[in-house]
Design a protein around this nucleic acid. Sequence first.
DNA 1: ATCGTTATGCGCAATTTTGCACAACGACCA
DNA 2: TGGTCGTTGTGCAAAATTGCGCATAACGAT
Lengths: 292, 292
Amino acid sequence: MNWDDYRYFLAVARCGRLTEAGKQLSVDHATVGRRVKALEASLGANLFDRSPQGYQLTDAGQRLVDIAETMETSVIESAAEVGGKGQVLSGAVRIGAPEGAAAYLIAEAATEICRAHPLLELQIVALPRTFSLSKREADIAIAVSAPDSGRLKYRRIADYTLHLYATRAYLERHPDINSVADLKKVRGIGYVPEFIYDKELDYMPLISPTIKPHLTSTSVHVQLEATLADGGLCVLHDFMAAQHPTLVRVLPEEVSFTRAFWFIVHEDYARLERIRVVSEGIIESMRKRLAG
Amino acid sequence: MNWDDYRYFLAVARCGRLTEAGKQLSVDHATVGRRVKALEASLGANLFDRSPQGYQLTDAGQRLVDIAETMETSVIESAAEVGGKGQVLSGAVRIGAPEGAAAYLIAEAATEICRAHPLLELQIVALPRTFSLSKREADIAIAVSAPDSGRLKYRRIADYTLHLYATRAYLERHPDINSVADLKKVRGIGYVPEFIYDKELDYMPLISPTIKPHLTSTSVHVQLEATLADGGLCVLHDFMAAQHPTLVRVLPEEVSFTRAFWFIVHEDYARLERIRVVSEGIIESMRKRLAG
DNA sequence: ATCGTTATGCGCAATTTTGCACAACGACCA
DNA sequence: TGGTCGTTGTGCAAAATTGCGCATAACGAT
């Protein structure tokens, strides 16, 4: 019997593949396979259906996930409970965030935190999708809406506003934009519809049901760069647009959105010293920047 | 990080010594020491005060015990939850019991259980003291009183009776025993007072406050053998005395005790298949024998 | 239909972990 | 006070574990 096998099991259950689990655990996939097999032997039960597509949990395996997760909770709690008071912070903290926030709000805060805690390793994962904190894809998440499920703690960081932007040059070439109705005639830049992972990001229908962007991207940076290259009109975060003097707001009275960033952390991690330090730093920094 | 280190930690915390923990885990004490040291390093905290007298938990270690125990609960639960339905029972079950019950009531039941489940290993620990199921000194305990603490499940197995016995030969040589008062004049056999681990076993003061046995032992078997050797009068379990035709009851009306055996199992273990099988077998067998 | 990709499983060499012998230290007893 | 017992801690050889390369099988694209 080896309690560590439960850790390997959990990784495979979450990844669905030996190879990926091995990568996550920093061991060879063969090792992961052997440990899982050992656990199955010790419990006398099949935990996975194996196939070239990966490892699929059996019913028994599914039930074991809950159990292994309470073990994981204990392990994390132990670090918070007895973990090195007063000693230098170390370890990795992975932050999942929308790219806009990641680049314009979090990057600098992260830099400062790293400077203050040299042994702390920060990973900022800026992907255009939500993160599963339950599956431990990230330790901390910044999102545009509050979560509704799981053992998660969350709080509102701050509101932010978005407006329609274009370059001064573009607007000079299209002087006939005076109302929302006129927007249908011009080029719009926006998200690729099927990649809108949060309904809070779906601005276009809110401007007008018939409007459709002509240039779309999953990345707000691409949208920004396209806009800066006189590519058209685009709904952008004010905190991003403020950095670029060539951008001006279009119909700021008629088109204006207010959204909020939410801070989310798994209950288990909330008490960890290094998570707390990073959380506080990022929230404080984001609030300062979004207020100013 | 290695979850298995928590298992080593827990053993040391319970034993208080590397050597004993190693024995319990079937590994060398050096290994135990190394694993504990690794856990301390990974948590960045001192868990034990080390001395040539053993390992003493620090405050941090004390707090970690609770956490490690919930992990242990999870591991045990996992065996019950997904554990091999339908497959051959195996593993060890350790039963703590008073020696009298162990030899005269449990031994035979255990033999049958072993025959029915060849891979099952039964350990009957018959020691003149109570067992700490919480410290996992045994999986199942038979006791003469119900427990009052801990996460334990228990139920009354059956009542049993005790009487005062002596051999026919001894009584013929001492015909003048007609009342409780006469008992002070003759030789008594009983427990060594300071080894009476449960007040339910302290029969002598109940017969008469002034009575004192002349030959005492921590073992009921020694008491029985002494009685059989015409050593005197002794309070014996009826189920034991019944096996020996030379024994007769003395003052059966005046001196008669009724006690009960209790079955105790740790909550965590109660659901385990092999524990259930052994429990049922022993309880059923004990009830049959105590009724007949 | 075939090829390329990606997955698991197995045998062998390298590394890590473990067990053993011994030293050091304090407690207890005569 | 000196000897014995039981404990922890360390160096070194053996054993178990791990990583790597290759074989094999299934799926999707061309």
